[in-house]
Structures are given as C-alpha cells and as structure tokens.
Lab assay of single mutants.
Amino acid sequence: EAHFQVQLEQLRSMGFLNREANLQALIATGGDVDAAVEKLRQS
C-alpha cells in the first residue's frame, strides 16, 4: 500500500474516495493512475 501512496492521493484528489477500491485498481493496473481511473469508472 505504501508503494501506491502517491497514486492513492492522486485518486482521492480526483474524487475517488473508496481507498480499498482505489488500491485494488492500482494493484490490478500496476500503479497506472489513468488505467486505474478507467477501471474505477467501469465498476
């Protein structure tokens, strides 16, 4: 989780407030914030 701290903060600042969902999306996308946003929008 600490590995994705910067990305988690970016997602939070973009309005994605579900930390667990954000973390799962980042893990699934290897930390790619843009891909994580797409994944979160689809769910």
Score class of each variant (00 low, 15 high):
E1W: 01
A2L: 08
A2E: 14
H3A: 09
H3G: 10
F4H: 03
F4D: 02
F4C: 03
F4A: 02
Q5K: 15
Q5F: 06
V6A: 11
V6E: 14
V6M: 12
V6H: 14
Q7F: 04
Q7P: 11
L8R: 04
E9N: 06
E9F: 02
E9Y: 02
Q10D: 12
Q10A: 07
Q10C: 04
Q10M: 07
Q10H: 03
Q10K: 13
L11E: 00
L11Q: 00
L11T: 01
L11H: 00
L11C: 00
R12N: 13
S13P: 03
M14C: 05
M14W: 06
M14G: 05
M14Q: 12
G15E: 12
G15M: 02
G15Y: 03
F16S: 03
L17W: 09
L17M: 08
N18R: 05
N18T: 07
R19E: 13
R19V: 10
R19W: 07
R19P: 04
R19A: 12
E20H: 15
E20A: 06
E20L: 05
A21W: 05
N22R: 02
L23H: 13
L23M: 13
A25G: 04
A25W: 06
A25D: 01
A25P: 00
L26K: 01
L26W: 00
L26D: 00
L26F: 00
I27Q: 11
I27M: 07
I27E: 13
A28F: 06
A28D: 11
T29E: 09
T29M: 06
G30K: 12
G30V: 08
G30W: 02
G30M: 08
G30P: 00
G31N: 08
G31W: 03
G31E: 02
D32S: 10
D32H: 07
D32K: 13
D32Q: 13
V33H: 15
D34A: 07
D34N: 10
D34Y: 05
A35H: 15
A36Y: 01
A36T: 12
V37K: 14
V37P: 02
V37R: 11
V37H: 08
V37C: 15
V37I: 09
E38D: 11
E38K: 14
E38Q: 09
L40C: 05
L40T: 02
R41L: 03
R41H: 05
R41P: 09
Q42K: 11
Q42D: 13
Q42T: 10
S43L: 13
S43W: 15
S43T: 09
S43D: 14
